[in-house]
């Protein structure tokens, strides 16, 4: 009974505004992240295509990372180029055939 009175007067159990605020912050973040991951996939594929024209690459060794800073974000592209291109190329072709 006293709880009900408290509720009537205090509105202390109004947790919905907290839910609303948490959701708004979270979703603003998640929507950005999802858009970003699509961008990274596209960047990765295109970089891989360009470099592969000239150098034999292991597609798994191409890593694209985006880090978001306050004022500047950095795009980090890490491509491992095998020293012996021909051998590496043959290895990749064998793997694709198998």
């Amino acid at each position: 009974m006293s709880m009900n009175l408290l509720r009537l007067f205090g509105g202390r159990n109004a947790s919905a505004p907290v839910a609303r605020e948490r959701l708004q912050i979270l979703l603003a973040h998640e929507r950005g992240l999802l858009g970003q991951s699509d961008l990274l996939v596209t960047l990765r594929e295109e970089i891989l295509a360009v470099v592969s024209k000239h150098v034999a690459l292991d597609p798994d060794k191409v890593i694209v990372k985006l880090e978001r800073g306050k004022s500047v974000s950095t795009l980090e592209v890490d491509i491992e180029v095998p020293n012996d291109f021909d051998k590496a190329k043959a290895a990749i072709q064998r793997r694709m055939a198998g």
Binding site: R7, G11, N13, A14, S15, A16, R20, L23, Q24, L27
Partner: peptide
């Protein structure tokens, strides 16, 4: 419950 602020109300959900 929504009127008492214990549950997200319709406007909150639609806005989000």
């Amino acid at each position: 419950r929504a009127a008492r602020g214990e549950m997200l109300n319709i406007d909150d959900i639609l806005e989000i």
